[in-house]
Design a protein around this nucleic acid. Structure first.
Length: 504
RNA sequence: CGCGGGAUAGAGCAGUCUGGUAGCUCGUUGGGCUCAUAACCCAAAGGUCAUAGGUUCAAAUCCUUUUCCCGCAACCA
């Protein structure tokens, strides 16, 4: 039986259309999902939307539509966006899905019945105009940090989850599983900042708004985001439903991919909920960095971004995919700008990769009418290149295992640069002029073989481009098992993969 | 003193765990080549590794100081 691999993105909050930051998270998840499929695993890739809450309720009111109508519009937009980015998700869950709502209620009931949820009251400093609760330390001069007005102490009846009860088990879990949270440096933050000072019980219901899943036994309350949103990772698989075959097959999750700002909920609240439900914990959580614009974070409210589809239609899906995957290194922030996108596309995709494929295939037609046999009579220079190409398979594999996607891609492009260098060192046009056709064939074979392997490895990141390269190389088999095929080539006509983007 | 991360050529980054001649991509300048998409290859210029001190034969790397930036602090990827 095939090894399974379950990977998730966060479920995004559809209060506005998605921006390039959402795309980054989803593209990196897609690349990891594709890579694991490529390695032969049985992959389940989940994404979706977290659609309840006050903010959506307000937004809908402003737009004079029902909350459901409001999110429907954004979700259909999002699905179109994922399609345009070649996102290969297996399921798109919405927290307004009937199946999800029913199970969330069952989870809430179960936790209540076993005493992990109790009725209490939430007391906090509340700014009425902003409809927000603040902690003491968040206040500026004792006033609301948003609007500067007075806050008042209010009490609201709420259900609470006994998070505090799981404190010791959480600490033990972190210590026993050093790889649980990636990058590892975030572990200290979780333990020092949150767990050690003492976990407070978590408020898991609200009475101040109604756009949410009702508590089944107390309809005044709606279930607050924690249980509603986090549990999507198991409700999507049919946990506690009539058909839980997916759940049995894929849980526990292999990788929850999340942005660094929600690491805490996934590293503390989610494991505690799972402990309460007596379920195995996810194997790994990766808190990635952000794409920023200049020094600013991308924000739905500040309008410093365009619809990502603009970039896709203008520069191509793989230009966008390549850019975000390459730009953000492991766990750190990256930058987004159109200038950098153009420069990266030209330098790497058009020049290094595109031009290499083009010049190689052109020579194969020019000197050999498109046909090159499998060769074995290598010189050192050939062996050196081919060895680095075959070693690349393991290099990429190790990097991907560590979730170092950017470095995995870089290592492929290093080899592509070596290919360009190899051409200049071996000057095929001189060999042709001197009539050394046997040597020339070995050189061109070495290049075609190198390109073939690189294209196979690039599939997870820029799938469309890899397909185009296979088409030109006339290569049919691009699976993991085909990496070391020994084949001759009968290539098709060269087609430009990426046109250079000229200044507008 | 809330917790954590960061500051390295003009730009974007790696290197820091495990101290040993400061590296990559882009950009700039010069040269080469002509198979190719103004491409490709070679070379050069350009850095007191944020700051001040300490440990050491030796510090970008370890310890401490200061400054600035970012994230978290009950939900913006």
């Amino acid at each position: 039986m095939k090894e399974k691999f379950y990977i998730t993105t966060p479920i995004y909050y559809p209060s506005a259309n998605f921006h390039i930051g959402h795309c980054y998270t989803t593209i990196i998840a897609d690349a990891i999902a594709r890579y694991n499929r490529f390695k032969g695993k049985d992959v389940f890739f989940l994404t979706g939307t977290d659609e309840h809450g006050q903010k959506i309720e307000n937004k809908a009111k402003e737009a004079n539509v029902s909350p459901k109508e409001y999110v429907d519009e954004i979700v259909s937009n999002a699905k179109d966006l994922w399609k345009s980015l070649n996102i290969s998700y297996d399921k798109f869950i919405r927290t307004t899905d009937k199946e999800h709502e029913v199970i969330v209620q069952r989870i809430f009931d179960k936790l209540y019945e076993q005493g992990d949820i109790y009725l209490g009251s939430y007391e906090g400093l509340y700014c009425t105009p902003c409809e927000s609760f603040w902690t003491e330390s968040q206040l500026v001069d004792g006033k609301c940090p948003d609007c500067g007005r007075d806050v008042s102490l209010v009490k609201e009846e709420s259900y609470f989850f006994r998070l505090s009860k799981y404190q010791d088990r959480l600490i033990k879990m972190f210590n026993d599983n050093p790889e649980f949270l990636q990058p590892v440096s975030r572990k200290n933050e979780m333990i020092n900042n949150f767990i050690k000072p003492g976990l407070e019980d978590l408020c898991v219901s609200r009475t101040s708004f109604s756009w949410g899943i009702p508590v089944s036994f107390n309809l005044k309350h709606v279930i607050y985001v924690w249980i509603d949103a986090l549990s999507n990772y198991i409700t999507a698989l049919g946990y506690m439903s009539d058909n839980d075959t997916l759940f049995k097959k894929y849980w526990p999750c292999d990788l929850h991919l999340v942005g660094k700002e929600i690491v805490r909920f996934h590293a503390i609240v989610w494991p505690a909920l799972l402990m309460a439900l007596d379920l195995p914990l996810p194997k790994r959580i990766f808190g990635h960095g952000w794409l920023k614009i200049g020094d600013a974070k991308i924000s739905k409210s500040s309008n410093n971004y365009q619809d990502p589809r603009t970039y896709v239609s203008q520069y191509g899906v793989d230009a966008v995919r390549y850019y975000v995957l390459k730009e953000v290194s492991f766990g750190n922030d990256g930058n987004f700008s159109v200038e950098a996108l153009v420069s990266r596309t030209n330098a790497d995709l058009a020049n290094t990769l595109g031009n290499l494929v083009n010049r190689t295939i052109t020579m194969v037609h020019k000197y050999f009418d498109g046909k090159i046999n499998y060769c074995t009579n290598y010189l050192d220079t050939d062996t050196k290149l081919l060895n680095s190409v075959y070693e690349l398979v393991d290099v990429v594999d190790n990097k991907m295992e560590e979730l170092r996607v950017s470095e995995a891609i870089s290592s492929i492009f290093d080899v592509l640069r070596d290919c360009n260098k190899y051409i200049d060192e071996n000057t095929p046009w001189v060999l042709a002029k001197e009539g050394k056709m046997e040597r020339l064939e070995v050189v061109l074979y070495t290049l075609l073989e190198s390109i073939r392997v690189c294209a196979i490895l690039l599939q997870s990141f820029i799938p469309d481009t890899s397909s185009k390269i296979f088409e030109q190389l006339n290569v049919k088999d691009s699976k993991y098992e085909n990496l070391k095929d020994k084949v001759g080539f009968s290539v098709n006509q060269p087609v430009v993969l990426f046109k250079r983007i000229e200044d507008k």
